[in-house]
């Protein structure tokens, strides 16, 4: 299998986004209708009757477009975040899910939905950060942080926050379990412009920041002492990665729940194509992560007339992938 050229991934998002607007679960509007609507928008030529026009606009603009944007944003965010965490921890086996961040952010978001005074994005961010911090300090020994202990600590922290999420749901939500499944399996079917508005700013800011400092991650990836020796303060640099990476992952969780395994599997796929140099992985993560999640979601929303949480698909794809990585990198386990 030949690996596509990098430029392929920079070109693909736009046509993919446009294509995604043309597909849906129903045949209530056809491609011709959409083209006619676009024609109407651009050259103001009335080519459809008013009712049809409104319908096309409602479906394309109010249903499909926010979902397509959200899928792309979240795909980019989770991939960039996963890639950044892997550089930060110098560990190709970590991700927002594995570090407990996703569970923490989901708990924070659920809390914010219950107590309306708490701002959604901020609360998700704070608990996401808290979860990563907890995982890190639980795993920290005098000898540093080993892969195994970090993954174990992440499992514990995830478990705690998932349990807390369940408590919140039990105390407040009459439909309890269904809602928990929605949080833990992630979904995009509730995508709306308000969700896009709530998450677009933190995600874009975080991604831009992580894109700017992409090369510094190469430096960080070589070790604390080496980083210091070449003139960067590793603690400071790590915070500069940690904060935006947490921000974009928790912003994603706050609007779509935990879309599992994206943050782990996608950065690996990117590195398989580009190699580890973050000057290449970050931009490709943005383009590829967004495109791939969008593709999975297109599949998700067209395969049946009912909704299957997208997290089920990503976890089913990513789970075996993680096992494969674990097997392949048993070196990491031994060495640490």
């Amino acid at each position: 299998m030949s690996i596509p050229n990098r430029t392929f991934f920079y070109i693909i998002p736009l046509p993919l986004i446009i294509m995604s607007l043309f597909i849906g679960p129903s045949d209530v509007i056809t491609s011709q209708d959409i083209l006619a609507w676009m024609q109407n928008k651009i050259i103001q030529a009335p080519s459809l009757n008013q009712d049809k026009l409104e319908m096309v606009e409602a479906i394309v603009f109010n249903v499909r477009l926010p979902r397509v944007i959200l899928a792309f944003l979240i795909g980019s965010a989770l991939t960039v975040s996963g890639n950044s965490f892997q550089a930060l921890f110098r560990n190709p086996l970590v991700s927002p899910d594995i570090l407990g961040l996703s569970a923490g952010a989901a708990f924070g978001a659920a809390l914010a939905l219950v107590f309306h005074i708490l701002p959604l994005q901020l609360t998700a961010f704070v608990f996401g950060l808290l979860a990563v911090g907890l995982s890190y300090f639980l795993a920290l020994t005098r000898k540093g942080v080993s892969t195994v202990s970090l993954i174990l600590a992440g499992i514990i922290v995830s478990g705690i926050f998932t349990a807390l999420l369940t408590v919140v749901q039990f105390l407040t939500d009459p439909f309890k379990l269904q809602t928990i499944v929605h949080w833990t399996m992630g979904n995009l079917h509730n995508a709306s412009w308000s969700k896009v508005k709530s998450s677009v700013l933190p995600i874009l800011l975080g991604i831009i920041w992580l894109f700017i400092i992409r090369w510094r991650m190469n430096v960080i990836a070589l070790g604390d002492e080496e980083t210091r020796a070449v003139g960067l303060n590793p603690e400071q640099e790590k915070i500069m990665i940690l904060l935006p990476a947490t921000l974009i992952a928790s912003a994603s969780v706050a609007v779509a729940g935990v879309i599992g395994m994206v943050g782990l599997a996608f950065p690996h796929m990117v590195r398989m194509m580009t190699g580890p140099d973050n000057r290449k992985t970050q931009p490709v993560s943005i383009a590829f992560g967004g495109s791939f999640l969008l593709l999975v979601d297109d599949f998700c929303r067209t395969i049946t007339s009912f909704e299957i949480p997208i997290g089920i698909f990503t976890t089913l794809i990513g789970g075996p992938f993680f096992v494969y990585l674990l097997k392949k990198s048993r070196m990491v386990f031994r060495e640490s």
Binding site: P25, S26, A58, V63, R64, N187, H189, E307
Partner: peptide, 18 residues
């Protein structure tokens, strides 16, 4: 959605429009 042989399900907004 009477033709779908299911009990409970989550549908797509677009489907409802259709």
């Amino acid at each position: 959605c009477g033709l779908i042989d299911n009990e409970h399900m989550v549908v797509n907004m677009e489907q409802i429009m259709a």
